[in-house]
């Protein structure tokens, strides 16, 4: 179970090798002895290979910034898309209840990103927006405005593609 990451744009992989007597971490091709306590605070003080490093770290958008010795490193973790809490790899969207299409926001062939609006539906006097759960290309929108649909009806299908982050 390795962590894929980029430090200032350089790809590397991190893995824990051992914990005793000291935490040993492999970063790419080199191993490092780490002395640190479990803290995710912004201020940090750790010892790596016997050298003490003190600095700050925080989240900056999708990245982490780490400031040490007057230099800010940008660290990016390559995360796997999780089906948990999302719908990675979903190839189609079906209606979870019957309703009517209020608006269509996407068209076939269109590339969409996570959170992009696809459809506005009305059902049981409630309007809801269907958004893309992941980056994808819309293969087809199977409904049009004011179209009434049944539960389970196919609404949008996506083009099959390689999942990111594998």
């Amino acid at each position: 179970m390795a962590h894929r990451m980029q430090t200032d744009g350089v790809d590397t992989e991190a893995e824990i090798i051992a914990r005793r007597p000291r935490l040993r971490v492999r970063l790419g091709g080199s191993e490092h002895v780490v002395e640190a306590s479990p803290s995710a605070g912004e201020r940090f003080s750790i010892r790596v290979d016997g050298v003490r490093y003190e600095g700050w770290r925080c989240v900056a958008g999708d990245d982490l910034q780490v400031r040490v010795n007057g230099h800010t490193y940008t660290v990016h973790f390559v995360r796997r898309q999780h089906a948990a809490g999302g719908a990675a790899g979903q190839e189609e969207i079906r209606a979870s209840m019957p309703g009517v299409v209020v608006a269509v926001h996407a068209a076939a062939g269109q590339g969409v990103r996570t959170g992009d609006k696809l459809l506005t539906l009305e059902s049981m006097k409630l309007q809801m927006t269907i958004v893309a759960a992941h980056e994808a290309v819309v293969a087809q929108v199977h409904v049009t405005r004011e179209r009434v649909f049944e539960r389970g009806a196919l609404l949008v299908s996506f083009a099959r593609q390689e999942l990111a982050g594998t």
Binding site: M1, H3, M5, T7, D8, V10, T12, A14, I16, R19, L23, V25, L27, S30, H32, V34, A36, P38, S39, A40, F44, I46, V48, D49, V51, Y53, G55, R57, L64, V66, V68, N69, H71, Y73, V75, F77
Partner: peptide, 25 residues
């Protein structure tokens, strides 16, 4: 500065719950 970059990467890793859990728990 490879050593410093490694330290920065490790400082970042330590904030990752997945990493610190595996490192300390």
């Amino acid at each position: 500065k490879p050593a410093e970059a490694a330290a920065a990467a490790i400082a970042a890793l330590l904030t990752e719950p997945e990493f610190s859990q595996v490192a300390f728990e």
